[in-house]
């Protein structure tokens, strides 16, 4: 059975929980306390991930670390319809990869600001993190606006959401916990509504559900 080394308040762990929910996979949760006891920096956990980072999954004899890597693994292995990560479509993989790296930049900015404000991290240059996060949000907002204009609802030019959407969602929706307002990113906010309406969407502390979709409402 799949095992997820998990921390409830981590946005990176939330990415994996979302993927598992969307794919309808059952898994065993192993809780690792990130704050305040820093279990992810313990000797025992270093044996699982020498980088001392969450999340990690184990699938029989395979261990995968890093949220983005886990998304790729789960989608490639368990999504029979190959929608979340279309392995046979190189152009789409290129697009998805761009935004997976973008998601990593969100971790070092938006997520860092949240660690500063909510988890008392003191070695973070907060103003710089916020400024850089706003730069990233500006780029994504413009991108999503023109996607909408061309009839695309998601980050990539695809009919369905991909793992790029999952990778970007948590640290965008949690940005206000790091003092980063989304008032000036209307296209991002509309995309967040759409993301929350994906069937089997699940929440975490600080993330609220959206109202029902037009099609589901009937």
């Amino acid at each position: 059975m799949l095992k997820l080394y998990d921390y409830e308040l981590s946005g990176n762990c939330y990415k994996v929980r979302l993927m598992l929910a969307f794919l309808g996979l059952t898994y065993k949760q192993i809780l690792i306390e990130f704050y305040p006891s820093k279990q992810h920096k313990s000797q025992e956990f270093f044996k699982i991930n020498p980088l001392g980072q969450l999340p990690v999954i184990s699938d029989q004899d395979i261990l995968v670390r890093d949220a983005q890597a886990i998304l790729i693994y789960l989608a490639a292995k368990y999504d029979r319809q190959k929608r979340w990560y279309p392995t046979r479509n190189p152009a789409m993989i290129a697009q998805i990869s761009e935004w997976l790296f973008f998601a990593n930049d969100l971790t070092s900015t938006s997520s860092a600001a949240r660690l500063h404000d909510g988890f008392f991290y003191t070695d973070i240059r907060i103003e710089e993190c916020r400024k850089r996060a706003h730069e990233l949000f500006r780029v994504l907002d413009e991108h999503l606006y023109f996607n909408e204009q061309q009839g695309y609802s998601w980050i990539c030019h695809s009919k369905n959401p991909t793992i790029a959407d999952i990778a970007c969602f948590p640290y965008i929706i949690l940005s206000e916990e790091g003092g980063i307002s989304r008032i000036n990113y209307p296209a991002i906010r509309r995309w967040c509504d759409r993301f929350k309406r994906i069937p089997h969407f699940t929440v975490m502390p600080g993330v609220f559900p959206a109202g029902p979709d037009k099609t589901l409402d009937k």
Binding site: E148, R182, I183, P186, R189, R190, D193, A210, G211, P212, D213, K214
Partner: peptide, 21 residues
């Protein structure tokens, strides 16, 4: 304070004018 396209089905738009949200 908003474009018509900012109000798709069942969305709530956040706006601000002269400090008032």
């Amino acid at each position: 304070v908003a474009s018509t396209s900012d109000l798709p089905y069942r969305h709530i738009f956040q706006a601000q004018l002269l400090g008032r949200e």
